[in-house]
Amino acid sequence: MAIEQGIWKIGDKPEKLRPSGLADESLLEEQVMHDIAILDADWLLIGRQVRTDFDKFIDLLALDGDGNVIIIELKRNKTPREVVAQAIDYASWVVDLDASQIGEIYRAFAERYGRAHDSLEAAFEHRFGVPLDSTDIQLNNAHQLVVVATKLDASTERIINYLNDHADIAINALFFAAFEDAGNHYLSRAWMIDPEDSQKRVISRTSKQPWNGEFYVSFDRDMPWEDARRLGFIAGGGALWYSRTLDLLSEGDRVWVNIPGTGYVGVGHVTGERCRADQYEFDTADGPRTLDQMELSETYSDLDANADDEHAEYVVPVAWEKTVDRAHAVSESGLFGNQNTVCKPKTPKWDHTVKRLKHAWHIS
């Protein structure tokens, strides 16, 4: 399966940009160091030229939001088959790394390259908005391999497909091409296998299960739930850790809301993006009003127009399908709970929780 990439400039007629080639793949590695989103926006880079116990060096190491390790190998001057074999060899070392060893890899990486966070725990929480020791995170519970190249031969592509389909190895290839236009240089990328398919393979090889598409929301017990029911919103803030995960939500997403220590109190669909709570205007009988312009039935002490964006309170509008007051919250043994404002659980307990709530509230 040959993958050909091209970029066209749109004008009176499409004009194909001239391929310029990647003269030095170390240049690509430098670009990844500046922004790993060039490879995947959902990864955290944790190591570069990581020395293994058998005195070989892994080009790049990363983590995804579930704590799985990604081994990234650039083809450089190796043959396609060599780089695939080398990646598998590295995986045999990575599979046995424990949390302290991975933490040390990141610490050395952060110190050498001047990263913003000096510990893996701080970097992970900043990147993904959840603590590394969360009950839903299992560090190095699985891993995947990514070969970065400008092209691969047909035999190597067959090997990659075989390893995915029959050998229980999650491996993918990422192709880059360089282009030039009027002195400006561009990179184009293409995956050999849909990265979502690769992620599903990783999940299937862990104790987790594929995410069921339903979001969990933790609604702080000190926030005004009765007003949230009436006006239609969920909220979080006071620190980035509490507000950042609200960005996981998009219009149309379904959320199941739990008040920790009380129980599940509502389900609905997101109708808009995250907004500062002191700025979002709700439709009322008196016209558009912000929360601090309305008389609320409960105290909402976290509203502060003078707070900076990092410490501000944020709301996400929701159209409710079903809500109940605190006295009728669904709380029973075996239901999922989490300290994050929003998360995408991938445990059997979450699937059980959603099914139980649907039955309790007569929701299809």
Results as ranks from 00 to 15, higher is better:
residue 178 A to H: 04
residue 222 D to E: 12
residue 171 I to H: 01
residue 285 A to F: 09
residue 140 N to K: 11
residue 278 D to H: 11
residue 125 E to W: 05
residue 334 G to A: 06
residue 20 S to V: 07
residue 126 H to M: 04
residue 179 F to R: 04
residue 51 R to S: 13
residue 131 P to D: 05
residue 137 I to N: 03
residue 187 L to S: 10
residue 319 A to D: 15
residue 340 N to Y: 06
residue 113 Y to V: 11
residue 77 N to E: 10
residue 19 P to Q: 03
residue 236 G to Q: 00
residue 322 K to A: 13
residue 339 Q to Y: 11
residue 192 M to Q: 03
residue 97 L to R: 07
residue 44 L to Y: 05
residue 71 I to C: 10
residue 41 A to Q: 13
residue 192 M to I: 03
residue 35 D to L: 10
residue 339 Q to G: 10
residue 179 F to M: 06
residue 234 I to D: 00
residue 260 P to M: 00
residue 334 G to E: 05
residue 167 A to R: 15
residue 205 R to D: 04
residue 88 I to Y: 01
residue 16 K to A: 14
residue 83 V to L: 04
residue 119 S to R: 12
residue 64 D to F: 10
residue 129 G to L: 05
residue 254 R to M: 10
residue 199 Q to L: 08
residue 168 D to K: 13
residue 138 Q to F: 06
residue 213 G to F: 08
residue 92 S to R: 12
residue 78 K to F: 05
residue 364 S to N: 15
residue 43 W to P: 02
residue 262 T to C: 12
residue 299 T to D: 12
residue 11 G to P: 05
residue 249 L to Q: 02
residue 21 G to V: 07
residue 198 S to A: 14
residue 201 R to E: 12
residue 206 T to P: 03
residue 190 A to V: 04
residue 25 E to Q: 12
residue 69 V to S: 12
residue 246 L to G: 01
residue 141 N to V: 02
residue 161 N to R: 12
residue 129 G to D: 00
residue 134 S to F: 05
residue 118 D to W: 11
residue 194 D to K: 14
residue 261 G to A: 02
residue 160 I to M: 06
residue 346 K to C: 11
residue 54 F to A: 14
residue 65 G to P: 10
residue 345 P to H: 06
residue 327 A to Q: 14
residue 127 R to A: 11
residue 89 D to M: 07
residue 147 V to Q: 11
residue 70 I to F: 09
residue 235 A to W: 00
residue 306 N to E: 15
residue 188 S to D: 05
residue 337 G to C: 11
residue 71 I to Y: 02
residue 227 D to I: 01
residue 26 S to E: 14
residue 341 T to P: 01
residue 296 L to N: 10
residue 120 L to I: 07
residue 190 A to H: 05
residue 20 S to F: 10
residue 357 L to C: 08
residue 50 V to E: 05
residue 309 D to M: 00
residue 72 I to F: 03
residue 229 R to H: 12
residue 317 P to L: 04
residue 262 T to A: 06
residue 232 G to T: 06
residue 177 A to Y: 09
residue 264 Y to D: 04
residue 24 D to W: 01
residue 269 H to C: 06
residue 200 K to Y: 03
residue 313 E to L: 09
residue 275 C to W: 13
residue 235 A to M: 02
residue 18 R to L: 15
residue 189 R to G: 01
residue 174 L to D: 02
residue 240 L to A: 01
residue 185 H to S: 14
residue 293 Q to M: 08
residue 152 L to V: 05
residue 204 S to P: 02
residue 269 H to V: 06
